[in-house]
Amino acid sequence: MPPISPMVKNLLIANVLVFLAVQALGTNSDFALQTILFPPSEEKFQVWQLVTHAFRHDGFQHLAFNMLGLYFLGPMVEQRIGPKKFLTLYFVALAGAVIFHLASPTISIWQMQQAYDVFMADPSLENFNAFFSGRDLRALVYGNQNAATAAGELEDLFAFGDYSGDVVAEASALMQQMMDYRRGAPMLGASGAVSGVAAAFAVLNPNTKLSPLFIPIGFPAKYFIPFLFLIDLVLGVLNLAGDNIAHFAHIGGAVFGALLAWYFVKTTVPPHMKRWS
């Protein structure tokens, strides 16, 4: 691996500085809330969030995972196409991640709508639980209480056979708020842009062998990296319980990064091959 390159170094520093600032100011501070990306349909949306969210991370592990990917793969991509084109690729991949992420709730909302319709046609404890299966309610406020508490109270009422109109209406309102919340779920992290860098690496260095962590077997990048994004696609479609990863953002970043890298392959002379005039 070549030494750390200029743009990769600057991006690493920027991400770490923003992370430290959030830790110092608090995750509920105005700075923290104004720098994650809310959907454009939300009142909290600000245009700068399209960029700032890529420098925000939900904890040290999230930051470390993304920065390690950038550190190991980024320098070789930057060395091949040059600093300016590398920075362009990074933010084009970020744009692809945003586009795919904002479109991705369609699948989840469709699944929730199907479960909602089943419950309304046949209100039962089983159908109520089926709607909320795998849904993280801890961050959602319903009325003057946490949505998880409200769901637990409704579950108790259904368990004791209370299917009165008021109780079903309350369950319906909670379900609709959950769907609204899913539509407005915020996004943060550099993973979409880093996915673009990874995909670009596979385009630019297809036969370079990469090894998964703690596995001493290398696989050509042209097979290994697409396989990782195939897993992302499967998990994004399955939408498994408790999975809060923005899989479609990864895919969007990878698609845009790979396409731009392919274009650069056709049009860019590697910096180390350029002659002095």
Rank of each mutant, 00 (worst) to 15 (best):
G59P: 04
A97C: 13
P271C: 09
K209Q: 15
L157S: 12
A121G: 13
L33T: 13
S195E: 06
Q34R: 14
S29C: 10
G257M: 08
H272G: 01
I4E: 08
L204R: 07
L188G: 10
N127P: 02
M1V: 07
L233P: 01
N244T: 14
V234A: 12
Q113L: 11
N205V: 03
K209P: 03
F86Q: 00
V118S: 08
G96F: 04
P271F: 06
L37S: 02
E153K: 10
A64P: 01
D156R: 13
G196K: 05
F158Y: 06
W276I: 14
V203G: 02
P212G: 07
K85M: 01
D166R: 11
T88H: 04
S29D: 07
L213D: 11
L174F: 05
F60I: 15
F160Q: 10
D166T: 12
L68K: 15
V77S: 06
F219R: 02
P39N: 08
A185V: 01
A103S: 12
P186N: 05
F128A: 02
E126P: 02
S5A: 12
A173G: 05
F264D: 04
L140H: 05
Q34G: 08
L25S: 10
Y90T: 00
K84C: 02
R135M: 11
G143R: 12
F131K: 00
D180S: 03
G96N: 05
P270D: 08
P6E: 02
F219D: 01
L240I: 10
A121Q: 15
N146C: 05
L154I: 12
G242F: 06
L140K: 06
N144H: 07
L188H: 06
P6V: 04
V92L: 14
V237E: 09
S124A: 10
F65A: 15
S108M: 11
S191P: 04
F38D: 09
L25A: 11
N66F: 07
F19T: 00
F201H: 04
S108E: 12
L240N: 08
K85W: 04
G82A: 12
G252P: 10
A64D: 08
V8N: 03
Q79A: 15
L240V: 09
G161Y: 03
N15R: 08
G26F: 05
R56M: 14
A261W: 11
H272S: 13
L174S: 03
E153D: 12
A148E: 10
G82L: 02
L235G: 05
M112A: 13
P216G: 15
L87A: 09
Q114S: 11
D243A: 09
R135A: 10
T27M: 09
L235H: 12
P75N: 10
Q49E: 09
P75D: 05
A185R: 06
A258Y: 07
A32Q: 04
G253M: 08
T35P: 03
A21K: 04
F128M: 06
F72S: 14
S277A: 14
S191E: 12
N10W: 09
P123K: 04
Q34D: 15
G26M: 08
I36E: 07
R138E: 09
P216N: 15
Y90K: 00
G134C: 07
P83F: 00
I217K: 14
A150G: 00
V77G: 07
A24Y: 01
H53R: 07
L37A: 09
A198T: 09
S124H: 11
Q79I: 01
Q145T: 13
V234R: 05
L125S: 02
V22E: 00
